[in-house]
């Protein structure tokens, strides 16, 4: 149907517009950029795939053996096959657990202070700056600091607990920063809604703000744990490597996966030792992966009525 208005206008002026678009030069630049981006992505992927492939292909053999998960390296020399990583797995888990128990509450409460109470104050700026510095502290410096306090000043022995103390210094800033970011993401409208119901501030934080940010907080804790479990310098400095099973973090030397790798690495030319190095590395990766999956499940099921 044509209206009178449209009828008075020429519908078609005879000229054809060039809508084919890409001129040669622009098409070339577009292709070049696309190729470059894809190439960079593939290059970034190379080390990741390479590492995973190397570790899995060389390490999976020993992991299939039940003894790996239940026996220690007691009496096994680098030249001999056999034994397991039970002592090292337990050592790594125990030290990581103690670290988390100390670091996580401090980090979360610290983040709550920074976001909910100290926002804009001088104290908060100072704390925030200190956390930034702490983030950059190398693990060996943290280890030496704990060595100076725990062993030189207090005169205690080199034990697993001392390792945990130095790992706390490394985990704290990671968890605090990520928790802080997650709390900042909680909209102020939710806090106001709670205040408007006559709910005190501390209860608003505990029952509204933290549950809303819970998934993100858990992810931060996991990132912190993953970083801490692979640290080697504190283990070398603060606790000797033991091939025996020792579950007491306050007495005696303790095995751990990174130091187990370090021990067998000294005789990498020997096949039994090399096998154990790769198997221990794969075990460490799997542990971190397992904890990650576990945390995600916890975060999902703690969400009330998510479906």
């Amino acid at each position: 149907m044509t209206t009178t208005l449209a009828a008075n206008r020429p519908a078609y002026d005879g000229k054809t517009l060039d809508l084919t678009g890409k001129s040669g030069a622009r098409a070339f630049r577009n292709t070049l950029a696309s190729v470059l981006i894809t190439l960079c992505f593939l290059i970034a992927l190379i080390p990741l795939v390479w590492i995973l492939w190397t570790v899995i292909s060389k390490g999976y053999g020993l992991l299939l053996d039940g003894g790996w998960w239940s026996e220690s390296q007691r009496g096994v020399t680098v030249r001999r096959e056999g034994g397991g990583a039970y002592h090292a797995i337990m050592g790594t888990l125990i030290m990581a657990l103690i670290t988390a128990v100390i670091a996580v509450p401090i980090a979360i409460l610290g983040a709550i202070y920074l976001v909910e109470y100290g926002r804009g104050t001088k104290a908060a700026r100072v704390v925030s700056f200190m956390i930034d510095i702490l983030t950059g502290v190398p693990s060996i410096v943290a280890a030496l600091f704990v060595y100076a306090v725990w062993i030189t000043v207090f005169g205690f022995n080199r034990v697993g607990f001392a390792v945990s103390l130095s790992l706390v210094l490394l985990m704290l800033p990671v968890v605090l920063r990520s928790t802080e970011e997650m709390l900042k993401l909680v909209p102020d409208e939710l806090r106001e809604a709670s205040y408007a119901l006559g709910v005190p501030k501390w209860k608003t934080i505990l029952k509204v703000v933290v549950p809303t940010a819970f998934g993100g907080i858990i992810t931060g804790v996991m990132l912190g744990l993953a970083r801490v479990m692979g640290e080697t310098a504190p283990l070398l400095i603060l606790v000797g490597y033991s091939k025996n099973i020792n579950l007491n973090p306050f007495e005696g030397f303790m095995g751990a996966l990174p130091t187990m790798i370090n021990q067998d690495r000294t005789e990498l030319a020997l096949q039994p030792a090399a096998d154990r190095v790769w198997a221990a590395a794969l075990t460490l990766i799997l542990l971190v992966l397992l904890l990650n999956i576990l945390a995600r499940l916890v975060a999902r099921f703690s969400k009330v009525n998510s479906k």
Binding site: E189, E192, L197, G198, T212, N305
Partner: peptide
């Protein structure tokens, strides 16, 4: 605030509840 309640511009139910 227990005596004087408030409803806001944008609906803001608690997402975890």
């Amino acid at each position: 605030r227990r005596v004087v309640g408030m409803v806001f511009q944008r609906p803001n139910p608690f997402p975890t509840m």
